[in-house]
Design a protein around this nucleic acid. Structure first.
Length: 596
RNA sequence: GGGGGUGUAGCUCAGUUGGUUAGAGCGCCUGCCUGUCACGCAGGAGGUCGCCGGUUCGAGCCCGGUCACUCCCGCCA
């Protein structure tokens, strides 16, 4: 092919026997027999075994050179003797008899080995990412990521979407996450912001008449990290479409996801048509708006039961009287589970900051009774009612949580997952997608006083625009939706509000008057005032999709050069201090924080 | 900002109730070895037990503080 190689390290077969070839790659592994030396030569494509005997003048050189050095090998392709073949290698039926070699780049002692599948501390992996990325699993994940993105591009193009780039230096937006700011040299004292998402731009693209747009869009948010959330930056498949209803967006995304997941994973899709679950229903049944539908457990509301006279569980009754809710989870056929199973869950709940989970098991001798620490507080009639509501049967157990709606939703949602894991109810070989729909337009803030947008302020409220009752804002639903897979939120989207008058009304409810809206969203409002198509879209998170396809639990496993949890790049040393001169040009002065 | 976990050789980890000189595997160095593919065998070097302080006759182990990494909550679409 060129002066470095005639073939790559995965190419040679029996049929190439007796050919003179030259290969280049990393010295993956050495097996030194003293007078005979085996070398596994590795490149991106695979591994080829090379052999050299002590009479070769390069023998000593190869003996002393370190792993991960890059060498060029010149030699003869030889068919391996029967019994010395390696079935695990594509090239396992041949080997290279080395004539001579050339060292292209020598490696120092390694801080972490490339060979093997052991786990290593993440700070070392990130500092030596180039070594980490040579390792098989990481290398595969990154290749997968590349293929997924290519696939998305080609599918979107086939569907008639056009790919555009939107600005990276843009303006700070008042809603949503913290912005990354970039000082402007030409405009002293002013800042650009990196886009949290190309939200306004993609809407402007629709207003500009381009009909359907997509982009593999970088998004920047200055928020704290999680396992499934990179600090700093991540990528979305940003999509926007003109003249569409919610279902049209769903069609595109469902088709894409089904093709994508069928193409890149052997795991089965639980639903060929993704279930649509309203936000309200999701919060009751799963305690979360990102339910893992592989998990068969459901949450039920039992608040009313604790208003009955034949229930004497006073702690819960008192809480219910003061507005708390009771929710429960039923586990099937758990009456013979060891006491420790129940107690562990209760203990776990306390560790999560809840006041624990009460539980009992339904039994029947002469009459139906509840066995367990709080069982004695429930008479037969009450138990029958509970069984009716929850579809619980004799032999099943019920776990209860009581508290304010938000708290009880949080703990039951976590408990649903915890209990299912303990009982091994989650099928890891499935993908369960669903849509969460009908999000409320507004919600109360934590103090329950101020009304604020619950999602995106640019979403279109549902129903006949002329008949919306703005006096009851909390009842207004929006054409706002999320797509969730295996409990991971992949994306949210919405049909956008393209009517300025309506937008002013909604902003007013959230406490912004017309002047304020004009100031903050002048570009957007202005654009919508000169003929805007009804439009909507969505933006699936690419990192999370690849994470699911790769079967990884951490987003950094599918990211080439991720920041660590403190948003530092240990390889490049970012963020870093800058020259006084640079600061001066930008009119910026650093005030050192003095710790007392 | 808050809570949990981890921190012992270059790397992965063990280290009993607080008790003499802190161990193993991989890697590294030296020697032996012509069919290995996690090659094998023999020997060797390598340690501020994250850091600071305390308790104790004695601390890798107990206590307090602190730092780093990570997971979670807050935050975030």
């Amino acid at each position: 092919m060129n002066k470095y190689r005639s073939h790559n390290c995965s190419e040679l077969r029996e049929s190439d026997s007796d050919k003179k070839v030259y290969l280049s790659g990393w010295l993956h592994r050495k097996r030194d027999h003293g007078n005979l030396l085996f070398i596994d030569l590795r490149d991106h494509f695979g591994i080829t075994q090379c052999v050299v005997e002590n009479k070769n003048k390069y023998f000593k050189v190869l003996e002393s050179i370190r792993q991960e050095s890059v060498i060029k090998v010149y030699g003869n392709v030889v068919k391996r003797e029967l019994g010395t073949e390696n079935k695990d290698l594509k090239t396992g039926k041949i080997e290279i008899n080395i004539d001579n070699i050339e060292i292209l780049s020598e490696a120092k002692d390694l801080p972490m080995p490339v060979f093997g599948e052991q786990e290593y501390p993440e700070d070392i992996r990130l500092k030596y990412r180039f070594l980490d990325l040579r390792r098989n699993q990481m290398h595969k994940n990154i290749v997968l990521r590349s293929k997924v993105i290519s696939f998305m591009r080609s599918e979107m193009s086939k569907l008639g979407f056009l790919e555009f780039q939107t600005p990276i230096l843009t303006s700070s937006s008042p809603e949503g996450a913290r912005d990354f700011l970039v000082p402007s040299r030409l405009n002293p004292g002013k800042f650009y912001a990196l886009p949290q998402a190309p939200q306004q731009f993609k809407q402007l693209i629709m207003v500009s008449g381009f009909d359907k747009y997509f982009q593999i869009a970088p998004c920047f948010r200055d928020e704290d990290a999680r396992a499934d959330r990179s600090p700093g930056e991540f990528y979305q498949l940003d999509i926007e479409m003109s003249f569409v209803e919610q279902e049209n967006v769903f069609e595109v995304v469902e088709t894409l996801m089904i093709n994508l997941f069928k193409n890149f994973s052997s795991k089965k899709l639980m639903f060929q048509k993704f279930p649509r679950i309203s936000y309200e229903e999701a919060m009751i049944k799963y305690g979360s708006d990102k339910p893992d539908l592989r998990n068969p457990l459901l949450i039920h509301d039992l608040t009313n039961i604790f208003e009955r006279d034949d229930v004497t569980f006073d702690i819960f009754k008192k809480l219910v009287k003061s507005g708390s809710k009771v929710r429960c989870i039923v586990t099937k056929k758990t009456k013979d589970k060891a006491r420790s199973f129940f107690d562990n869950i209760d203990k776990w709940a306390k560790e999560q900051g809840a006041s624990g989970l009460a539980y009992f098991t339904i039994e029947k001798e002469n009459e139906i009774s509840a066995k367990g620490p709080v069982g004695k507080f429930f008479k037969e009639e009450a138990l029958k009612e509970i069984m009716k509501i929850t579809a619980a049967e004799v032999g099943d157990s019920i776990f209860f949580a009581c508290g304010k709606v938000n708290d009880v939703e949080k703990i039951t949602s976590l408990a649903r997952e915890k209990i299912a894991r303990d009982l091994n109810l989650i099928d890891e070989n499935k993908f369960a997608f669903c849509w969460i729909v009908d999000y409320p337009m507004f919600e109360l803030d934590e103090l329950g006083k101020k009304i604020q947008f619950s999602h995106n302020p640019f979403s279109m409220p549902q129903g006949d625009i002329k008949k919306i009752n703005f006096d009851k804002p909390l009842e207004i639903k929006a054409y706002q939706y999320d797509i969730v897979c295996n409990g991971i939120e992949l994306s949210s989207g919405a049909i956008r509000n393209h009517i300025p008058e309506l937008m002013y009304k909604l902003f007013l409810i959230a406490g912004y008057n017309k002047t304020q809206v004009d100031e903050k969203f002048s570009g957007m409002i202005n654009a919508l005032s000169y003929g805007a198509p009804p439009h909507g879209g969505i933006a699936p998170g690419i990192d999370r999709i690849v994470m699911l396809l790769a079967g990884e639990k951490n987003i950094r496993e599918v990211t080439l050069f991720p920041l660590n949890q403190n948003a530092q790049d240990l390889l490049m040393g970012a963020p870093s201090e800058v020259d006084e001169k640079q600061l001066k040009e930008l009119n910026i002065k650093i005030e050192k924080k003095i710790n007392s």
